[in-house]
């Protein structure tokens, strides 16, 4: 499955744009973390965002998901302007993300971790919950059913009542992705998903990314340091350094771009290839 040719990349321009960042600039105090950043994500794409440490990749993710509010520029999801919206609303619109270091609700059960993601769509209010109305019972059963179905897809169903923090690392990563996908987002943002994984686990992760992308009809934006992973699964790449885009294009083009080699890929590309 590794590095399979991606027939999706044909007719790229004809697919509808789902996420568009235009001239996004962000300051931390006087430090310009992101400068005039542009990015266009089309339906179904798998795009990589790479760059050396401190280049501003995670800041871009945080700007998209509303953790920070962009100082300038616009971020549009379909026709909605995201700048200024609170995080939870952005997530509820259909953008999901994972974290560099796994952030599960580690004292809660595996099932509850997934069920929490359905909270915005719970369909009952506090009063229903306190009085245990029929609506509560129906919606709660429905929610549990959906969450369990999800855990089955991700092969976590046998551990649904386990405490999330007790799972091994690989399963925690998988649970985090399951939680992010539980509300059926249209865009999935993965922040260094392969961090701390061995080569075998990375292969599994690549298969997992391919699988969820087709199963859930996702657009995926990926930040990753592992060149092998990025080069083999991304359709095209954007390279950042010091908060600016220094190159973009197909993986092979990027690999040979002298600016990129200078900033970042030089050593690693030689080592990996």
């Amino acid at each position: 499955m590794k590095g399979r040719p991606n027939n999706l990349s044909v007719n790229v321009k004809s697919r509808p744009v789902v996420l568009q960042l235009e001239d996004v600039t962000h300051f931390f105090g006087n430090l310009r973390a992101v400068h005039n950043f542009d990015l266009t994500l089309r339906q179904g794409e798998l795009v990589g965002l790479i760059g050396p440490n401190g280049a501003g990749k995670t800041t871009v993710f945080n700007l998209i998901t509303g953790v920070y509010r962009a100082s300038e520029g616009s971020i549009r999801y379909e026709d909605v302007e995201l700048v200024g919206l609170p995080s939870y609303e952005i997530i509820q619109m259909g953008i999901a993300r994972t974290f560099q270091n796994i952030r599960l609700f580690s004292n809660l059960s595996v099932l509850d971790n997934v069920r929490i993601a359905y909270h915005p769509h719970a369909g009952y209010n506090m009063l229903d919950a306190v009085l245990r109305t029929r609506r509560f019972r129906e919606k709660e059963a429905e929610m549990t059913e959906r969450a369990q179905e999800f855990l089955e897809i991700f092969r976590l169903d046998t551990r649904q009542n386990d405490i999330a923090g007790s799972l091994p690392y690989g399963l925690q990563r998988r649970l985090e992705i399951a939680r992010a996908l539980a509300a059926w987002p249209r865009i999935l943002i993965l922040d260094e998903p392969a961090a701390g994984m061995n080569p075998q686990e990375i292969d599994q992760l690549m298969d997992l990314i391919h699988f969820i992308r087709e199963r859930f009809d996702l657009t995926v934006l990926l930040v990753e340091h592992r060149m092998r992973l990025v080069m083999s699964i991304c359709e095209w790449l954007t390279v950042m350094d010091f908060g600016e885009v220094i190159a973009r294009g197909l993986p092979d083009e990027v690999r040979s771009n002298p600016k990129v080699v200078e900033a970042y890929l030089g050593r690693e590309a030689v080592v990996v290839r």
Binding site: I91, F99, F105, I116, A117
Partner: peptide
């Protein structure tokens, strides 16, 4: 979930 991890809770839509 807010007790467990505030940031994560916000980013699953809470």
């Amino acid at each position: 979930s807010v007790r467990e991890d505030e940031r994560a809770a916000e980013l699953v839509g809470i």
